[in-house]
Write a protein that binds this DNA or RNA. Structure first.
Lengths: 169, 169
DNA sequence: ATCAAATTAGCACGACCGTGCTAGTTTGAT
DNA sequence: ATCAAACTAGCACGGTCGTGCTAATTTGAT
């Protein structure tokens, strides 16, 4: 993702792009924020259905690369992670996205399993977060048109497992 | 990871390195194979303790970046994933590592939970694989000296959960 | 000792990169 | 109509990149 690539793909000259984003870091920063913005927009546009499990599942399915859009976003995210050691100014952005997804997982776990204390919620959220990112990574490594039913199934399994912790504590 | 970087870090000139690895792709390919080799060496060097759960847990802990060595290896792996779209000749290497880890997870699941049919083993292995990679990714995003107790705890939870499926099927 | 092979070292070329800089062009308020 | 501000476009510099190429050095067998 070089500035020349972005500029040519956007159909503008490099100098024009540099007027809006004077440096490459600002361009990547905007891309990251746009990625977060679009993801949250997808999330809030999901109408609640009354059933917590299906709602949470719908939200999680918007976080893994099942559609070309979310796939492109994840590729941006991976590039961000890969370039973070070289571009230290991008680390806060990456960490922000990381934490946002974490607190979302915490909210989902709290909605899913009532009566859990804070430590249990944190542990389950970490676990859910890891599973979501792991599934996303594996989906990204497979061809875009490969069967992805296992991913949604694994997500469904995990969500129902968390929901079952309501009573068992 | 440029050829000049590798050469200077190895203390040799670029031309010398290019005599062994004529092209950058071959250098990365060797790095990937070395990474796989070292990981499997770590794995087979783990003496069995008699308890399946602790053995599996020990193996899994060698797959996540808890030590500087495994951390560096995962960074190589991430760079491989990130560069795979640009260097198509590296895709088979990355897929090979991916599949090797998958079949390892399948063996671990089969050892952990007896009596599971093939489909159930495959599903649990996929899930374990995703969790391991997700935890590894999250550990890599945190500072190297951060607390990593949550990772081993999450792994322990998952392993015991799988082991409990022996009877419940 | 000789000589061929293997290895090491280094130069040079073209390509791409980020970015500072200036020159045109459009826009919009007065 | 005027003019300043915003925007677009492009050039040029220094840097890093991968890689082809040749020269020097070491190695090892005869």
């Amino acid at each position: 993702m070089s500035v020349r690539t972005v500029a040519s793909e956007a159909g503008v000259a490099v100098g024009s792009l540099r007027h809006v984003f004077p440096t490459r870091a600002e361009l990547l920063q905007f891309s990251a924020e746009l990625m977060i913005h679009r993801a949250t927009e997808r999330l809030v546009s999901t109408p609640p259905s009354g059933d917590v499990v299906t709602d949470v599942l719908a939200i999680l399915m918007h976080l893994i690369p099942l559609e070309p859009d979310s796939r492109a976003e994840l590729e941006v995210n991976i590039a961000l992670i890969a370039e973070a050691p070289a571009l230290p100014e991008l680390v806060p952005i990456r960490d922000h996205a990381y934490r946002q997804l974490r607190v979302l997982c915490e909210h989902l776990v709290a909605d899913l399993a009532t009566g859990l204390d804070e430590a249990a919620i944190a542990r389950e959220a970490r676990r859910l977060h890891a599973i979501v990112d792991g599934i996303a990574l594996h989906l990204l490594m497979e061809p875009a048109d490969a069967d992805s039913g296992w991913a949604t199934q694994a997500l469904r399994d995990e969500v129902t497992r968390i929901a079952q912790r309501s009573t068992a504590g």
